[in-house]
C-alpha cells in the first residue's frame, strides 16, 4: 500500500534512516519505536507526504487511479500528528466531522453520509455524550480520543498515527488499538503507529520498525524484530523479557 524505496531522512545533526526500503501492506499493523529524538515523528511526516525525504521515494500504491492531488490522497491516508496545535473554537461533533473533508463536496459541504460516519466514529470512541461540548473544554485524554475519532471518521486505508496512545487511560489505550487492529484485519487497512509500550506492540502489532537512533533501522515481523538485545540497543538501557501469560513483553531491568 505504501512503498518506501531507499529512503534517507535527515534532521539537523542526525540521520534518522539511511536507504531504508520497506513496504507497508494492507492488513498489517506496524509499530515504529525508538528512543526520544530518534526521528519517529519525522518518519511519520515523511510517510504522510508532509515532509520530503533527503533521498529515495515514498510511493502510495493505489488501485484508485484518481488518487491524485492532496484531497484524493487524504481519502486514502489518515494522519494523526503528535502535536495538533490548532485553535479550535467549535464542538466535538464539528471537530470529528472535519475528518470527512476529503470526502465532502467542496461547495455543498458535508452530506448525510458524512455526518453518519462522524457519529459512528464518536460512538466508537465512547464520545457520544461529549458531542455538543466545546473541544477546548475537554481534558488531554478526551481531546486525544476526539482526534482519533476524526481519523476513524475519515475512513482512510492507511493510518499513520504518531503516538496514538498519548494521554489515554489503560482502557482507552486497549480500545484504540483494538479499533485500529480491527480496521486492518477486517477491512484491509494498514496502520503505522509510533508506540512506546512493548506490551501493546506484542499484543496488537504484526510488524515492527525500530529506529536505532544511529541511522540504522530494523524492520520486519514483530516476532523476529522484537528481541531483547535490539531493544536494549535502541533504548540504551538494560531490559528483562517477561511473559505475562498471553504473550511476552519487556520491562526495564533496574
Amino acid at each position: 500500500m505504501l512503498r518506501c524505496h531507499e529512503v534517507t531522512i535527515q534532521v539537523p545533526g542526525r540521520v534518522v534512516c539511511d536507504h531504508l526500503s520497506v513496504v507497508f501492506e494492507a492488513g498489517q499493523v506496524w509499530a515504529v519505536l525508538g528512543r526520544n529524538g530518534a526521528g519517529k515523528s519525522t518518519l511519520i511526516h515523511t510517510l504522510a507526504g508532509l515532509a520530503r525525504p533527503a533521498a529515495g521515494s515514498v510511493e502510495l500504491q493505489s488501485t484508485d487511479e484518481s488518487a491524485r492531488g492532496a484531497r484524493a490522497r487524504a481519502r486514502i491516508v489518515g494522519v494523526l500528528l503528535q502535536i495538533e496545535d490548532g485553535t479550535y473554537w467549535g464542538t466535538v461533533a464539528e471537530y470529528v466531522l472535519l475528518g470527512r473533508f476529503p470526502h465532502s463536496h467542496p461547495l455543498m459541504g458535508y452530506s448525510r453520509d458524512d455526518i453518519e460516519h462522524a457519529e459512528a466514529a464518536l460512538d466508537a470512541l465512547a464520545l457520544t455524550t461529549y458531542a455538543g461540548q466545546r473541544f477546548a473544554t475537554l481534558s488531554g485524554g478526551e481531546r486525544q480520543r476526539v482526534r482519533i475519532a476524526q481519523i476513524i471518521a475519515q475512513r482512510p486505508r492507511l493510518f499513520l498515527l504518531d503516538e496514538p496512545l498519548q494521554h489515554l487511560d489503560l482502557a482507552h489505550q486497549a480500545r484504540v488499538l483494538d479499533l485500529i487492529a480491527t480496521r486492518a484485519r477486517e477491512h484491509g487497512a494498514a496502520a503505522v503507529m509510533v508506540l512506546h509500550e512493548p506490551l501493546w506492540i506484542t499484543r496488537s502489532c504484526t510488524h515492527v520498525l525500530v529506529l536505532a537512533g544511529d541511522g540504522t533501522a530494523h524492520c520486519g515481523p514483530a516476532d523476529e524484530v522484537l528481541t531483547r538485545e535490539r531493544l536494549e540497543h535502541a533504548y540504551g538501557c538494560r531490559l528483562r523479557e517477561v511473559d505475562y501469560g498471553a504473550g511476552r513483553s519487556f520491562v526495564p531491568d533496574v
Partner: peptide, 14 residues
C-alpha cells in the same frame, strides 16, 4: 474550518 486545526493537520486532510 480546517485551517484552524493547524497547518500540518490541514495539509494532511487535503
Amino acid at each position: 474550518d480546517l485551517i484552524t486545526l493547524g497547518e500540518l493537520k490541514a495539509r494532511s486532510l487535503g
